[in-house]
């Protein structure tokens, strides 16, 4: 299925992926009593932050992420995605790491878990990172900076 006017969009795969993410977060909430926030879990696993989540549990969640990716790659044919050059990846990674620590969360914790709870902090955080993400892409495009081949 395609969206009229958006030939490159894959709305069904998007919706299916979103539902899987929602189920994953719901399992964390109702099963384990926690927010499935990847930036927080990553900083817990590496000892950068402390929380009542066991370190081993944090690692187990993180290991699940690439494992789930492998399952999807094995199940469906898709084009190899291309990534930014190492310099840009490093700059972006630094900003993402520092920003999610200062902002107490990322797309998963604020965008999925917090927004669906109507948490005021998450609504503001999500509106902010979306706005700055959009502004960054618009600015780079206006300057003619090509990130992906």
């Amino acid at each position: 299925m395609t969206l009229p006017g958006f030939p490159d969009a894959t709305p069904l795969a998007g919706l299916g992926g979103g539902i899987l993410i929602g189920l994953a977060a719901a399992l964390m909430l109702l099963g384990v009593g926690r927010i499935a926030g990847v930036s927080g879990i990553a900083s817990r696993a590496t000892g950068i932050s402390d929380s009542s989540l066991r370190k081993s549990s944090a690692w187990i969640f993180l290991l699940g992420l690439p494992f789930g990716a492998l399952v999807v790659i094995a199940a469906i044919d898709r084009l190899e995605p291309s990534f930014a050059n190492p310099m840009l990846l490093a700059v972006a990674g630094l900003l993402v790491g520092a920003g999610t620590r200062l902002g107490s969360g990322c797309t998963s914790g604020h965008g999925v878990c917090g927004m669906s709870r109507l948490s005021p902090r998450s609504l503001v955080a999500t509106a902010t990172f979306m706005a700055f993400g959009i502004a960054t892409v618009a600015t780079m495009n206006a300057l003619g900076l090509k990130v992906l081949p």
Binding site: L27, A36, G68
Partner: peptide, 8 residues
């Protein structure tokens, strides 16, 4: 949860 998340 991690596997479902990564798959999604």
């Amino acid at each position: 949860s991690g596997v479902l998340f990564g798959a999604g």
